[in-house]
Design a protein around this nucleic acid. Structure first.
Length: 257
DNA sequence: CCAGACGTTGTT
DNA sequence: GTCTGG
DNA sequence: CCAGACGTTGTT
DNA sequence: GTCTGG
């Protein structure tokens, strides 16, 4: 699945990478190697620009990076906490579920990440792994563009809207099944515009993992320091080999070469 | 009709 | 807001 | 996702 | 065990 990830790039760097305007307004804390649900994170969106009256111009589209709270708060929510459990949306059902279908049809976004974490458990012990683009792949150094949905929510009529987001998950594929049976949907750059298109109300064709992306991802064991959200540093994504006999996940065998 | 949910994950 | 269940 | 709380009363 | 907070 995807309940924790890392992001080193700042909003200006993301704006450049995604060819977007930086509209995050200083709301983000970056770098952050331990991004957890409820934090404010950057999301990339395509929107029709609006004039002073709020009327959208259907002939134009503007791409921007925006600050969003991780955990989708539907427009009908009574309070913010509804979003705490809506941190992921299943690709298999997001066009049907009441909480997600409106966003799925017209408010899709990309959530940039350096990689995401999964945990293997052995009784009480939890061993974290980090999934990222292989250093020797063409995609090394690029962000993973995680598929997301976004919504606005107002605590009361007329109040400033809160923008929130959820990350789309699919069944795992390939070597990634070794660490977990669900994974985030990563959109290849060639299909970003199609995913973000606010006039495309049927994302069905985009909901399967890309082979190109799967082949570029590696997994590595990392420090259990990432388990605790109070740790934030770059050392969280560095490879470690702690007590390997407790886990027996053979990374030589599962990483593609 | 009204009331209540609206979601995913993991674990057994 | 909209759908489902009673 | 994981970690950590989970509660009230009375006293200072 | 289950919920909340980060």
């Amino acid at each position: 699945m995807c309940g924790r990830y890392a992001l080193a790039k700042d909003p200006a760097g993301l704006a450049e990478e995604f060819d977007a305007r930086d509209a995050t307004d200083g709301a983000l804390d970056t770098p952050e190697y331990n991004v957890a649900p409820t934090l404010t994170i950057p999301g990339v969106v395509d929107r029709h620009p609006r004039d002073d009256d709020g009327t959208p111009d259907p002939s134009a589209v503007e791409r921007s990076v925006r600050a969003m709270r991780w955990g989708l708060v539907p427009s009908w929510a009574k309070d913010l906490s509804v979003g705490n459990r809506l941190i992921n949306a299943r690709a298999e059902s997001l066009t049907e579920k009441p909480a997600f279908r409106r966003a799925a049809a017209s408010r899709r976004c990309l959530v940039p990440a350096d990689g995401w974490y999964e945990w293997l458990r052995d009784g009480k012990h939890k061993t974290p792994y980090f999934m990222t683009f292989r250093a020797d792949s063409d995609l090394a150094g690029h962000s993973l563009a995680l598929a997301g949905l976004w919504e606005t929510w107002r605590p009361e009529k007329g109040a400033d809207p809160l923008v929130s987001t959820t990350i789309v998950t699919t069944d795992s594929a390939g070597p990634l099944t070794e660490v977990h049976h669900r994974m985030p949907l990563v959109i290849p750059a060639a299909r970003w515009a199609e995913w973000l298109d606010p006039d495309n109300d049927d994302p069905t064709d985009l909901l399967a993992p890309s082979e190109e992306i799967l082949a570029a991802i590696e997994m590595r064991q990392v420090s259990s320091k990432v388990n605790n959200v109070r740790n934030h540093g770059a050392e969280l994504v560095e490879e470690v080999h702690e007590v390997p006999e407790q886990q027996g996940l053979d990374l030589e065998a599962v990483n593609p070469s």
